[in-house]
Design a protein around this nucleic acid. Sequence first.
DNA 1: CATTTGACGCCAA
DNA 2: TTTGGCGCCAAAT
Length: 88
Amino acid sequence: MGKKNDYSFCERVFAVVRKIPKGKTLSYVAVARRCGSPRAARAVGAVLRTNYNPMIPCHRVIYADGTSGGYNRGSIRKRCLLIREGAL
DNA sequence: CATTTGACGCCAA
DNA sequence: TTTGGCGCCAAAT
């Protein structure tokens, strides 16, 4: 156990996003905060954009305003998924 | 190593 | 309410 951080920021982002339960949403700033960088909201988006993975519920990460935000497969798709899960 | 980019967030007009 | 602009951070080039 050793070190405080052997994982890159992107790995932490995935770890956090993967844990978001169905029907629940987190804002980019909230995810960034859990990753140890409370101001890295943009960086979170950058990671999810370049490393999207079908088994990661990245559609559950939305703007702090409560708006859906962007999505690799279209913001419309993202909103649809959120409604389907009951997050909206 | 320096610069650019971008799925953000917040405030002023 | 909508638009524009600045700040912030990490990944990508």
